[in-house]
């Protein structure tokens, strides 16, 4: 299979002016990826799927990642026809608050359908062009996006006998509020 730099060069030749950069992977796995701009991502994806040399017809994995300044969606592509891969695509949002829309690649690979719904549900990335974008793992009325690093879980305190660390701090807060103090680590009856 071609290297990621060769793929980038071919993409830039085919889609001049498109935003395609190589994101090197510093670790031993050396799985480098291609960062695509959102505007022409779907065209590029279709090209990668239909290109006779690459034939990346199988989208294996769609992951959301929460970085401090933006959200990122990572696509792992393989080829069942040619049995090679992976080619990794990355799409980034502009920020984490209001500009969180990315083009959906579900029309290109149906495999992205449920996985993009999961990224929407857990990270909050809105996929434009997704046929059925709604929550998949959390219930429909749920408000927040749980996999974000700044997610604050609701304070549904439940007594835990071996509380230590954060749970102990929460227990102490509740004990102070309730007025009684169940000592953490006390043996039961």
């Amino acid at each position: 299979m071609e290297t990621v730099e060769q793929i980038r060069d071919r993409l830039l030749a085919r889609f001049p002016g498109a935003a395609v950069t190589v994101v090197p992977n510093p670790g031993p796995a050396a799985q480098h990826s291609l960062l695509l701009g959102a505007e022409r991502a779907r065209e590029i994806a279709e090209f990668l799927r239909d290109d006779p040399v690459l034939q990346l017809d199988y989208c294996s994995n769609v992951t959301g990642v929460d970085w401090p300044g933006h959200l990122e969606v990572v696509y792992h592509l393989y080829s069942m026809a040619r049995k090679h891969g992976p080619v990794i695509l990355r799409l980034r949002t502009a920020n984490r608050s209001d500009q969180v829309t990315l083009p959906s690649l579900t029309p290109v690979w149906r495999a992205a359908e449920f996985q993009e719904r999961e990224v929407f549900d857990l990270f909050g990335v809105v996929f434009a062009g997704h046929p059925d974008l709604r929550r998949i793992l959390m219930w429909d009325g749920f408000q927040d996006h749980p996999m974000r690093k700044d997610y604050v879980e609701p304070d549904d305190y439940e007594w835990e006998p071996t509380a230590h660390g954060d749970v102990l701090a929460k227990a102490k807060r509740h004990a102070a509020a309730a007025g009684s103090a169940p000592a953490a680590g006390e043996a039961g009856a």
Binding site: P161, A187, G188, A189
Partner: peptide
């Protein structure tokens, strides 16, 4: 005892 019986000291 649900709340302490499974806590082994």
């Amino acid at each position: 005892n649900r709340f302490g019986g499974l806590l082994l000291d």
